[in-house]
């Protein structure tokens, strides 16, 4: 699993539960190191050992933690870069949802060896969507749930999300757009990034 993904989880745990908790998790995982490097690659086994250890140390179910991590990645000011990159996907939430089909390609443009599973958005009725997440990255759909929820807040829309099982091996997230421009949302300035 790519270092960026491991590192994201590390950032989430360290910020939410404290650095001490993170070090306890890594001690218990016995991987021989205490920090993940964003630009290195780790085996899936190493990542799974770390996640299991986190589950035990923090005493919280993994799916729940992964969803919280998705929210954290978008809403925490520390990781503003990812939120900005996602906002480039569209000027409103629906356009953003449609841009998710391109997400794996966009991720590869940024980091050549970052392989994210394919995503397919199916519009069933106006305001009714299903997002199909292809397999390949365990827990990816959970993280996406958190990301989708936080991005809705970011655009100021009100959505209802439901993890509705699997279809042809793909995990399915049902998305219902309840109200657009429900709240102010957060400003997005194309040129805000200082180069």
């Amino acid at each position: 699993m790519h270092g960026l993904i491991n590192r994201a989880f590390q950032g989430f745990v360290s910020t939410t539960f404290g650095v001490e908790s993170w070090l306890t998790i890594m001690d218990r995982a016995e991987l021989g190191f205490s920090e993940f490097e964003a630009m290195l690659t780790y085996t899936d086994e190493q990542s799974m050992i770390m996640l299991r250890s986190a589950e035990e140390v923090l005493n919280r179910p993994l799916p729940e933690m992964l969803e919280d991590m998705g929210t954290f990645l978008v809403s925490n000011p520390q990781v503003e870069a990812l939120r900005r990159l996602l906002r480039f996907g569209g000027v409103n939430y629906v356009e953003f949802l449609h841009s998710l089909d391109d997400l794996p390609d966009r991720a590869r443009l940024a980091v050549a060896d970052l392989n994210l599973p394919g995503l397919e958005l199916i519009e069933q009725a106006p305001g009714q969507f299903e997002l199909h997440c292809q397999p390949g990255l365990p827990g990816y759909a959970n993280v996406l749930m958190g990301v989708l929820r936080a991005m809705a807040d970011d655009y100021g829309d009100l959505v209802f999300l439901d993890h509705s099982g699997t279809h042809d091996g793909a995990e399915v997230i049902a998305i219902t757009l309840v109200e657009t421009e429900f709240s102010e949302g957060r400003a997005f300035d194309l040129g805000a990034h200082s180069l």
Binding site: F88, V91, L109, L195
Partner: peptide, 28 residues
């Protein structure tokens, strides 16, 4: 300088993608 938004560019214009790439690359 001009506070431009996505709406100022034609949807077929690759400018937004280029801005995306610049940010993604600087983050990486």
């Amino acid at each position: 300088d001009y506070d431009l938004t996505s709406a100022d560019f034609s949807p077929t214009d690759l400018t937004i993608e280029m801005l995306y790439l610049v940010e993604a690359k600087s983050a990486a």
